[in-house]
Simulated scan of single mutants.
Amino acid sequence: MIGLLIAITLFNLTAFKSNKRLTKNQIVHIWLFTISAQQVFDCMIEFKYWGYWYFTKEPNWGGLAAHIFVVPPVNMMFLNWYPFNSDLIKRVTYIIFWVVAILLYEVLALLPEPWGYFRYGWWELWYAAALDPILLFVMLKYYKWICALEKEACK
């Protein structure tokens, strides 16, 4: 539980203190989209097939806190610092950096309690390595769509 509390505090403080790009509307959209997408995916992988879980295989308050307060601020940081106006090499390098950072964080979350809180069933780290770039790309596309909707609403 200590690791989860540290992650929640560190990620949220960093995301909100460093934000220079995202509007409040965009933050709400990113937060809700992230929680929704994670819940849909985890309903199957976590709760039905036990690919991984937080703390115990059964739904629990600690796992709910991880779902709500860990990944959304990470997505905020990813989007806030994303080099939108840079060349393709820099944007791809940025995504690779984030995938590596997310994987390292996942390894730390796998530590025994009280530091770790994430557990693998049949899930393996390389599944996350393959899936994370796709999820980050989807997040980028969603953000661009929200920005387009905001521009349209302002007309």
Results as ranks from 00 to 15, higher is better:
residue 52 Y to L: 04
residue 32 L to M: 10
residue 112 P to H: 08
residue 15 A to R: 06
residue 141 K to P: 08
residue 115 W to G: 04
residue 145 W to S: 11
residue 109 A to K: 06
residue 6 I to G: 01
residue 99 V to F: 05
residue 3 G to K: 10
residue 131 L to V: 12
residue 118 F to N: 00
residue 85 N to I: 01
residue 33 F to A: 08
residue 91 R to P: 01
residue 107 V to Q: 15
residue 152 E to S: 06
residue 62 G to K: 00
residue 110 L to Y: 07
residue 123 W to D: 05
residue 132 D to M: 14
residue 29 H to T: 03
residue 130 A to N: 11
residue 121 G to I: 09
residue 58 E to K: 02
residue 35 I to Q: 02
residue 91 R to C: 05
residue 75 N to L: 14
residue 6 I to T: 01
residue 12 N to H: 05
residue 53 W to H: 01
residue 116 G to P: 13
residue 139 M to F: 09
residue 1 M to S: 15
residue 68 I to G: 07
residue 137 F to Y: 15
residue 137 F to E: 13
residue 116 G to Q: 14
residue 39 Q to V: 12
residue 131 L to M: 15
residue 143 Y to W: 12
residue 52 Y to P: 01
residue 46 E to W: 01
residue 80 N to G: 08
residue 93 T to N: 15
residue 123 W to R: 04
residue 113 E to C: 10
residue 70 V to A: 04
residue 56 T to D: 13
residue 18 S to H: 12
residue 98 W to E: 09
residue 16 F to V: 06
residue 79 L to W: 07
residue 2 I to H: 01
residue 63 G to E: 05
residue 41 F to N: 14
residue 50 W to I: 00
residue 11 F to M: 08
residue 124 E to L: 15
residue 58 E to C: 00
residue 12 N to D: 05
residue 147 C to G: 08
residue 35 I to W: 03
residue 36 S to R: 02
residue 151 K to M: 14
residue 67 H to G: 03
residue 11 F to Q: 04
residue 3 G to Y: 15
residue 85 N to V: 05
residue 63 G to V: 00
residue 99 V to I: 10
residue 120 Y to Q: 00
residue 132 D to P: 02
residue 84 F to I: 02
residue 47 F to N: 11
residue 47 F to S: 03
residue 7 A to C: 10
residue 74 V to D: 12
residue 105 Y to A: 07
residue 143 Y to V: 02
residue 73 P to S: 03
residue 144 K to L: 13
residue 63 G to H: 03
residue 30 I to P: 09
residue 85 N to L: 08
residue 13 L to P: 03
residue 99 V to L: 09
residue 95 I to Q: 12
residue 154 C to G: 11
residue 133 P to Q: 12
residue 153 A to P: 01
residue 31 W to L: 08
residue 126 W to F: 06
